[in-house]
Design a binder for these strands. Structure first.
Lengths: 216, 216
DNA sequence: TCAATAGTGTCTGTTAGACATTATGGA
DNA sequence: TCCATAATGTCTAACAGACACTATTGA
């Protein structure tokens, strides 16, 4: 990364908001009270720059990372660049338990003061996850590869910030052929042990949605 | 606009894909076989630059214009800039009937060769409209302020590229309190005249959507 | 009159959500 | 044993889609 301003201001930067669940909330990785950012190296694309940054932050190859857009109206940015391309990446549960050198994780509800442009980016990244979770398996990428259905539901509830109906949640999941059971079970304190599931690679039911008018 | 390269390559450009319905298809405005683009003037924000460009293209103040993201991996762009911020704007039916000086409208199914970066932008803009139409009144912005329900349905069918059920469409529309009738009627050739409606400014029903798993 | 389009009423299969019940472990 | 959690079955209201029907105009 290039967080020390040794060069003149670049023409644009790539900023990556890496989000992971931690202690029942969403957390974002920061370095020196700023969202990790860099500029593309020779011939590097926007996406591959973002992927490289994300793997530096987490030590993992993240499987969900998407562009959130260009941000330039707020000029406060560590680089001095006129615009920054913001990316949103998600890391699975547990990533925040072992922070990489020079990064730390912060609850999105209690962020330190950030450069204005990056504060807007973090908000956009969270909103982007919420908007896309019914079209993209982003909620699954925030969990380990195997998980209980209760954990999956809790993740949906965390992202959507509302309670869901257990039976309906599982029925919809089953109808979509989205998960498949493993032969493992997990006992978590009291209560009946839960079966572990994983995201199924099989064909999905074709989405037979009616037109909705859920406008604001 | 700044389509003649008199200055050195800017650090980024604003490109605006203006889309309007025309003869039963979607059309996009081009100038000299390129999507209109410019750079922000002194102190101009990304959004206001895009709005200015869009009004130069259509002669109107467009009410739906959103950023589609930053595009930089395809280096072919008239400006020579390393990245461009793409916007998608929609203009109401009829806009393409009276083209402004130096702009022309092209069916998105039969576009002339465009700079690679801009071809990707046009695809993204169309996809963006499709993705957002159930959360944003974008379909209404592609119609005049008053319209028949059949016209509205035809617009939804054009954008979604599939046929819709008439009775269901109207029921959902009514349940959402989305439109209100005017006292005007329109007779279009043969058949019973249709009542004109407009987008209602009233409170919407709160969207009581279940969780969907419409993943690919 | 026929043709064409607007608009509505009814039926049926599907589904979301409420509720209840069974299953299975730990304390 | 009691309690907590997993998992599932049943009922009901709401709704999408199919179909048929009426309404109203121009040719």
């Amino acid at each position: 990364m290039n967080q020390e301003l040794k060069d003149p201001a670049p023409s644009f930067t790539i900023d990556v908001v890496v989000i992971t669940p931690h202690k029942g909330h969403l957390s974002v990785a920061l370095a020196a009270d700023a969202v990790p950012w860099d500029v593309p190296r020779n011939g590097e694309s926007l996406n591959s720059t973002a992927r490289r940054l994300a793997s530096e932050v987490t030590g993992l190859e993240l499987s969900w990372i998407e562009q959130a857009g260009a941000f330039g109206d707020a000029y406060d940015h560590p680089s001095g660049a006129p615009i920054s391309v913001g990316f949103c990446a998600v890391a699975p549960l547990g990533t925040a338990d072992h922070p990489e050198q020079s990064f730390s994780w912060h609850d999105i509800g209690h962020l330190p003061p950030l450069p204005e442009r990056q504060r807007i980016m973090v908000d956009s990244a969270v909103e982007m996850i919420r908007d896309r979770m019914d079209l993209s398996p982003v909620a699954f990428k925030l969990l380990p590869t195997s998980f209980t259905l209760s954990e999956l539901q809790a993740m949906y509830e965390l992202l959507l910030a509302k309670r869901l109906h257990k039976a309906s949640f599982r029925r919809a999941l089953q109808a979509a052929w989205l998960v498949e059971p493993t032969d493992e079970w997990r006992s978590e304190g009291r209560g009946r042990p839960a079966q572990l599931y994983r995201l199924s690679g099989k064909r999905r039911r074709k989405a037979r949605r009616a037109v909705r008018f859920d406008l604001l």
